[in-house]
Write a protein that binds this DNA or RNA. Structure first.
Lengths: 213, 213
DNA sequence: TCGAATTAGTGAATAATTTCACGACATTTT
DNA sequence: AAAATGTCGTGAAATTATTCACTAATTCGA
């Protein structure tokens, strides 16, 4: 719910990762796991993992480790895995299509409800079970959806963003290179594929071997 | 080139972003820019920007700001924009195709030279000017390429990784959810689309309005 | 049952990053 | 030419994040 706050942001960013790992362990039938094992598998320092978990209380048992099922159940609640968050996607290009085909609902509390595109040829298609509407219908189709994935050409980014905000969207996962401008109450996370690639190359050249970025 | 080190990693991660912004300003014909203007456009605190730039020396002028052309030229050298880094891509699904169609060579020092896939139907195609080969030919085709983009199904991730490392790859941009294991000298950057979406939703729920993540 | 081994939780130290706030200098205005 | 304004560069403070290293609890093996 609101903010039981004071979980560090760095920790919050790792939670979905922890969740998925625990889920995998559970599927594999593992009953217990230690911070050391998690550390090896996820490449995160074991002290960091223990510290992260400790923000939620004493979840493990000394000399034993963590009970996978218990921990998983705990994270499920913490991450609100029980209620599904509806999401829309704007821009059904290759990247958008990748998202539509990706079955998020498995292991995930999000579900892409519908997609929009400006290309009439795409309208009416159903991709990964998700219908594609024309962008002109955005305002009339949208109801109570607060999260949007933005995979449109960079030139359209700000314009579409303004319309999304107008429709009540308060969270945007932005894959365009544009640093979009939004009101205070709207959260934007940027993922810039070109920057990521360039960043990797820079790190390879200037930070020879060892630590993980 | 090795390490003129001591540029903080956080700064290094922002460099490609700075570069692209300056490039845009240059294209728009702007001659000067202040840290305040950059701050507004990129949503990064102006003091952080000045601090970042200062690691490279005194690049600006008091009371004036920064000369766009000079700064751009400086970053071009710093980011080795002049030499092109060849890259290969493994896995020509929707996400992989998005990369192939993305024209990285524009504004970028990287170029995807070839792609590989296990599906014979895709072999021989040319997507975004990049030829698709069969994954079996990986070892014989690869020569002197040190960077790979991994957009394969999660089940293939570790196996392909091992082969890439064997071929001399030292940097991998991993889009699979697998936390792949590599030797010490290989750098891996993970981008996990499901985690990013889930993370956005978590932040929306637990960190009400204001700061950017 | 006992001793050795394991492992969580955490105070304290360290490291990394961001932000404040101000002096110095350049530009612009009058 | 002087005053007002703008803006960088940076020491210092604040904040955030990671890691060390130890204690106490538990498990495991014989």
């Amino acid at each position: 719910m609101g903010n039981q706050h004071k979980i560090p942001q760095a920790t919050a960013k790792r939670l979905p990762l922890y969740y998925r790992f625990l889920n995998n362990l559970h599927i594999q039938g593992k009953a217990r796991v230690s911070s050391k094992q998690l550390s090896d598998a996820m490449k995160i320092d074991s002290a960091t993992i223990r510290r992260d978990f400790s923000y939620f209380g004493a979840l493990g048992k000394k000399g034993y480790g963590y009970n996978v099922e218990y921990l998983l159940g705990f994270f499920r609640k913490t991450l609100d895995q029980d209620e599904n968050t509806p999401v829309i996607l704007i821009g059904v290009g290759n990247l958008g299509t990748a998202f539509l085909n990706y079955n998020f609902t498995k292991n995930n509390n999000t579900k892409i409800e519908m997609a929009f595109d400006a290309d009439h040829a795409k309208v009416g298609e159903i991709i990964g079970n998700i219908p594609v509407h024309h962008i002109d219908e955005l305002e009339e189709m949208m109801e109570n959806i607060s999260v949007a994935i933005l995979t449109v050409p960079v030139t359209e980014a700000q314009g579409i963003t303004d319309r999304l905000v107008e429709c009540g969207v308060t969270g945007i996962l932005n894959f365009t290179p544009a640093r979009i401008t939004v009101p205070e109450h709207v959260r934007v996370h940027h993922i810039d594929l070109a920057v990521e690639l360039q960043s990797l190359v820079y790190f390879m050249k200037h930070y020879p071997l060892d630590d993980e970025g």
